[in-house]
């Protein structure tokens, strides 16, 4: 077998797995490969996918972000509370006006960015592991969300809900947002100095520093990006269901996002990440989630399969990326 073909297979393994899964699912259930079901699949994975693009940046720099779900819950609750009807008896904020959706969403995203800035600064300047910093942030943000409201923030205005549940030309907005984020992520990673710096930091942060890259500033930006994606996810989650429950919203989403980024070949040893890979990772997990439910497979079995795929993908990734010793 020629080296080119081997390389082709090794580089495109993930797509082959995806295609194989789609074929299996299509054969097993004729309702799988329908437009409406694939739309459902994409809608369901879009939010995790957006968060996956966030956390992929962190993983690229050898970091991680465990606070995504909690940040989403906090932002969902806060921005949601700004668009509740003023005459609603269960309104979270007893006073205050009902903001137009763009303003509320913008405030939500800014809140996310601010949280990310804090997390990033802590990681960059104290040099504590990102795992610890974001674990702490997760607890804090989840608690803050619950303190902000001890019940679901509901009756969200229709304009606020447009991003999460509206459709344009029959395509759910949530999917459109996902695609836009994918394109932005691709652009950042491939075509900006910031993106290039992330690869350098992930590959060898000492060397990146010597090469004149401001490692700390870039790390802060990474976590701002992560939390921004989480915040966007929070707005979409709240928009999708019309209500944001601080205690359950976004629960464990960070794990799904990390799984998708990981399956997509983002290397936890740093320096390796591709947007197409992350997309493939999201789709693989989505196909499994959706397809097995259609087949009536027990959830536990679904999770076992997901576990196997996550571990398997990292094993393959290690073989490919780690220098053979």
């Amino acid at each position: 077998m020629s080296i080119q073909r081997k390389k082709f297979l090794s580089d495109n393994m993930i797509w082959l797995v995806l295609i194989a899964l789609v074929i299996i699912m299509s054969i097993a259930n004729r309702n799988f490969a329908t437009v409406s079901n694939l739309t459902t699949l994409l809608t369901g994975e879009a939010i995790k996918g957006i968060m996956a693009f966030g956390v992929a940046f962190a993983i690229l720099t050898k970091g991680i972000d465990l606070s995504l779900g909690a940040v989403a819950a906090l932002v969902g609750a806060v921005s949601g509370a700004l668009v509740q009807p003023t005459d609603f008896a269960m309104r979270t904020l007893s006073s205050g006006v009902r903001l137009p959706a763009p303003a509320a969403i913008l405030i939500g995203l800014l809140l996310g960015a601010a949280i990310g800035g804090c997390i990033g600064a802590i990681i960059a300047y104290t040099e504590i592991p990102a795992f610890i910093a974001t674990l702490g942030a997760q607890l804090i943000c989840r608690a803050a969300a619950k303190m902000f409201s001890n019940r679901p923030v509901s009756k969200l205005s229709d304009d606020y809900r447009f991003l999460g549940s509206g459709r344009v030309l029959g395509i759910p907005m949530i999917v459109i947002v996902f695609i836009i984020i994918a394109v932005i992520s691709w652009f950042i990673l491939v075509h900006t100095r910031f993106g290039k710096s992330l690869y350098a930091i992930g590959a060898n942060s000492q060397a990146a520093r010597v090469a004149g890259i401001n490692v700390n500033a870039n790390l802060i930006k990474v976590y701002v990006w992560c939390s921004l994606m989480a915040a966007l996810g929070g707005v979409l989650l709240a928009g999708r269901s019309g209500s944001s429950d601080p205690s359950t919203s976004g629960l464990n989403y960070e794990l799904d996002a990390i799984a998708a980024a990981t399956v997509g070949g983002t290397s936890h040893t740093g320096g390796v990440c591709s947007v197409t890979g992350v997309i493939a990772g999201i789709l693989i997990l989505g196909v499994i989630n959706n397809g097995l439910v259609l087949m009536g497979v027990d959830d536990n079995m679904t999770n076992i399969l997901k576990g196997i795929i996550i571990i398997g993908s990292v094993v393959l990734d290690m073989r490919k990326n780690i220098k053979k010793v």
Binding site: S36, N37, T40, T43, G44, I47, L237, R240, S241, S243, D245, T248, S249, L251, N252, N289, N290, V293, L294
Partner: peptide, 12 residues
């Protein structure tokens, strides 16, 4: 406990 997942199941 995930609303989004619940909605996805309904659509499925």
């Amino acid at each position: 406990s995930d609303t989004s997942k619940m909605l996805q199941f309904i659509e499925s």
